[in-house]
Design a protein around this nucleic acid. Structure first.
Lengths: 337, 337
DNA sequence: TTGTATGCGTTATCAA
DNA sequence: TTGATAACGCATACAA
């Protein structure tokens, strides 16, 4: 097994031409060769431990069984399950995942895509969340967007039904008697931040309510959430409930409340978004919206594989349901407005 | 930008032959072409958005700029930072990471490696933790092990100094006055489980102590830790401190203690291992050992790149220091033995 | 310093 | 049904 066997070696052993061996070994074209010789070739391939050189194949076919997966940062807890779902779906189809982090940096994203484009990838799964940049990929490459959609709807995408999630949160709060509800929005240069903000306003409006305050958090982090919450609490009077743009912001909100001597949920109810791990172990356990991250990744990969197999078909846009997770951080306000 | 530009296009635009363009674009051979023409070629490449076809290059050079990264499960919180570190180091060198999960399944690992081997990868980073299986890769492929070492020491590896970490934990407990110390060990078919168990025994022995109880947890999960802790608490009398095999097991231990009406740390001190996210927000905040996951990944990738550049060099074995993180889950025993 | 020629391993096209 | 041939894009030995 010093030099890996080539298709020529297989052909020689099976006493056929390399082209015939190629046909026999490729499921697509196996029926173009007689069963008897095909069997001989397969046998020869096995005894030689032949495994096709993917570089040569890619060069010839201008594609590969590798998919590029681009995310902002793997350390953000929403991405591991997404990537895992992607990988599982890809593997079932014999594909592999090439992973890249961008840190949300447009230039880094561009570099990464350029590098990846040189790899003859079969397609891309883009889970980046900046709103402005659209991937500089040709129209011929298969792409599936995760957590984001194009206005035009010309690119396939998989997103959670965030709007429904935020509205469910708002409905819960209103049902519990809250009227003075504020929002700690995520960064407004991200699609998720904008989307949830809009849904928050819509949700309130459906009850004839207006927000008692909205502060945009500088990032989806605990620290930024903490700072935004400070600002909110300093400014608005008598907030009874805060809808945070995500779980991290909600945790920052916990800290700000504690610092001001406010109890959660007795004084202020708080909700998150995403249902990260260990939220059930926070004090208080955070009421939030569970996003089916794994399923999103899995579905995105399935969609991509579909598009690779059938590039002409219209771009599907999948919306996955979310789930309200009711825990301890929401209760009725002490003095209903 | 429909058809990606080839080196021929670049050469044409720069009015040179493709071979010259190749030389100019390759750092290795850039000095074999005059600075003026080189500049012209680089400029042409940029205007065309040229990125080399890696399939062609791999076919020619019999290698690629892609590295296989194999882990058990990305959803285990120790792996995202490791993979991120790997990716960062690889990217600095122009390499990409092909990611695969094995779920600790030996067969799946074998399949994955076989598939990856067909991709002309430049090397592998193996972060799997089963002790029995050794990767079925030829001696010619570059490999770096993460969190694990071979007995023979013939394969490069990067590991945290887990022994020192466990001993630091034991020392802390002994300093605080604990004498009746037990261990909830991780699965003994993993290298980490075995290693920490041994270090626990050594650490106690250094103080002339013997363990008051050792129960092996079926897995590195909260549930398994919970069950193991139940068994431990039912069996041994008067444990004052428990050293858990990792943070998840420690959290399971929390639950078991609570169920038995025991308070942590007043009745029983508990320690973890890994310093997962959000441990500081647990109740009580968990005293644990911080592993430099990102650095481990980064260093592993650096090592691999070194080996790729210089396959003949002896295999380095890097041990990274760990850090004791003292929080609230350890205190002095109520009644020192 | 630059150009020419060749081959890496595979598969698509054409001919037999 | 099978064989011959060419080409995918790049890097390198050799010639100029």
């Amino acid at each position: 097994m010093d030099k890996p066997a080539t298709i020529k070696d297989v052909a020689e052993l099976a006493r056929v031409h390399a082209a015939t061996a190629s046909r026999a070994l490729n499921p697509q074209t196996r029926d173009k060769v007689s069963p008897r010789t095909a069997a001989r070739i397969v046998e020869a391939a096995r005894t030689l431990g032949y495994s096709p050189n993917s570089a040569a194949r890619s060069l010839r076919t201008r594609t590969s069984s590798v998919v590029g997966v681009v995310i902002p940062d793997l350390r953000n807890p929403v991405f591991p399950p997404i990537v895992r779902g992607v990988e599982d779906a890809l593997r079932e189809a014999g594909y592999l995942a090439l992973l890249g982090n961008t840190d949300g940096d447009a230039e880094r994203e561009r570099d990464l895509l350029t590098t990846m484009r040189g790899q003859q990838l079969a397609g891309f799964i883009l889970a980046t969340s900046r709103r402005d940049t659209l991937p500089p990929l040709g129209p011929d490459v298969s792409v599936v967007l995760v957590n984001r959609r194009t206005e035009a709807g010309d690119i396939a995408s998989v997103v959670p039904d965030s709007g429904a999630g935020v509205r469910a949160v708002v409905n819960l709060l209103v049902e519990r008697g809250h009227r003075r509800i504020a929002h700690l929005a995520g960064p407004q240069d991200t699609s998720t931040g904008v989307e949830r903000h809009r849904a928050f306003l819509d949700g309130l409006a459906a009850h004839g309510l207006s927000p008692v305050g909205v502060v945009v958090s500088a990032a989806f982090t605990e620290q930024a959430g903490y700072e935004a919450a400070q600002e909110l609490l300093a400014g608005s009077a008598a907030v009874t409930a805060i809808v945070a743009g995500n779980d991290m912001i909600a945790l920052g909100c916990y800290r700000a409340l504690e610092e001001r001597g406010l109890r959660c949920p007795e004084d202020v109810s708080v909700t998150g978004f995403n249902d990260m791990p260990f939220l059930d172990k926070q004090r208080p356990a955070l009421t939030t919206v569970r996003i089916p991250h794994y399923d999103i990744g899995y579905e995105a990969a399935r969609l991509l594989l579909e598009r690779i197999a059938n590039p002409g078909a219209p771009a599907k846009r999948v919306v996955l349901p979310v789930q309200l997770i009711t825990r301890d951080s929401v209760t009725s306000p002490a003095s209903p407005a």
